[in-house]
Design a protein around this nucleic acid. Structure first.
Lengths: 155, 155
DNA sequence: TCGATATTGTTATGATCATAACGATACCGA
DNA sequence: TCGGTATCGTTATGATCATAACAATATCGA
């Protein structure tokens, strides 16, 4: 006997196998990401950075100079999107761009000194933020979640 | 001895507790949601619907008429966002709006006949799509994932 | 070598997203 | 009842997102 409707103006409709939006992974994933993202913005928002922007900086910090396209793939952004993010971060002098001398198609991107300094300041904050997001879970549950999410993302 | 850099133009930087973007839940959640969302659009894209639009229709189907604000909360969208989604769906005659007679602030929203018909057509597709997204996981892992995601979303 | 094919970055379009500020309406306690 | 407070919907701004079409450059096989 699932969910009771309190005072619906219209009768609740039912489909064969009583469907619930909550049972769809996509919906759950979207809400969980909203939570994680808002946790992050809450902490690094004062730096005027979004989650994708932080991911971009962090990736450059990890890997050093990358082409714009590869950078985009490594942070899971389409070419058109990573372009905009790079432009904004470049305008703030957090990263710099230059042409690849051997392959004229490529734009090489790397952190500036200011960018490196900022990332090193933010990394501890992000680790703390991840802990906050994962707070409802026990240690073994967290490990499990990582494994499951990893499989989903890779397909 | 983690990750080896192949031919980085710049040296790989390291922070104290060798940080990896992949260890941050937010990043994993974002990628998993991307996958789920693209799975859905792949199947219902021919109906010219996005994931949030589908969620909105499905919620109305489940619950019957709702105020715009409550509808937004039930699909995890801010007032400004649910407004735009409602406008687009209304333009396509998939839902209809009317003023609440008792509370002049509210806009009551409900599916049209066409909207109901469309949702009933889409629900089996979405269930199939969820199965596709969850394909990499075994049955007990799926149950586990749902529980873990539920806890994260609720905080 | 040269021509088909693939890759990179750009542009354009449309749909989410979150936030802040605002007027209108409801509610609620003194 | 009446005035402060809360809720609802709107508007504006800026940042993601995905997709398609395009030009420039690389690559690879005949």
């Amino acid at each position: 006997m699932p969910r009771t409707s309190t005072k619906a103006a219209a009768p609740v409709r039912r489909v064969a196998s009583d469907y619930r939006l909550e049972d769809q992974v996509g919906f759950l994933l979207r809400r969980a990401y909203q939570r994680a993202s808002s946790n992050l913005v809450e902490r690094i928002g004062s730096y005027d950075l979004t989650a994708p922007q932080y991911a971009t900086l962090a990736r450059l910090y990890e890997r050093g100079a990358l082409s714009q396209n590869l950078l985009g793939r490594l942070v899971a952004m389409e070419p058109a999107n990573i372009r905009d993010v790079v432009l904004r971060l470049k305008k703030r002098r957090l990263l710099a761009t230059r042409r690849d001398p051997t392959d004229k198609r490529l734009i090489l991107i790397d952190l500036t000194t200011a960018g490196v300094a900022l990332v090193e300041q933010l990394i501890p904050i992000e680790i703390e933020c991840t802990a906050t997001t994962l707070a409802p879970l026990k240690a073994d549950q967290r490990r499990l979640l990582y494994e499951l999410l990893g499989r989903l993302a890779e397909g």
